[in-house]
């Protein structure tokens, strides 16, 4: 199962490090990272493979959101299918 992680907020040092540490600790593989500044908002989109994740989805989601909160960023992990169903026929 693949999941998309979206990170939005003010750019600062260590965003990728913070998120990828949680993913590495949970045995989640990063497939692709893309980041950009959109209207001064730092935006990072990460495609991950969570098939072999060592923790349940809910827990991973809670950890990412909490880590985001600590550094003042909005972090969300969502099943890839929500995007596929909306944008692909």
């Amino acid at each position: 199962m693949r999941a998309v992680i979206t990170v939005l907020g003010k750019d600062k040092v260590g965003i990728i490090a913070t998120i990828s540490k949680i993913l590495a600790d949970s045995n989640v593989n990063i497939l692709d990272i893309s980041q950009t500044l959109m209207q001064d908002v730092f935006t990072m989109i990460m495609l991950t493979d969570i098939t072999d994740s060592s923790i349940a989805f809910n827990e991973l989601s809670d950890r990412l959101e909490a880590a985001g909160k600590d550094i003042g960023l909005y972090v969300k992990i969502q099943h890839e299918d929500i995007f596929n169903s909306m944008h692909r026929i």
């Binding site: 998309v4 979206t6 939005l8 692709d32 893309s34 950009t36 959109m38 935006t43 989109i45 495609l47 969300k76 890839e80 929500i82 995007f83 596929n84 909306m86 944008h87």
Partner: peptide, 12 residues
Amino acid sequence: MLTKFEILETYK
């Protein structure tokens, strides 16, 4: 592969 634009559109 999903584009950045598509992911952000859904997000918004």
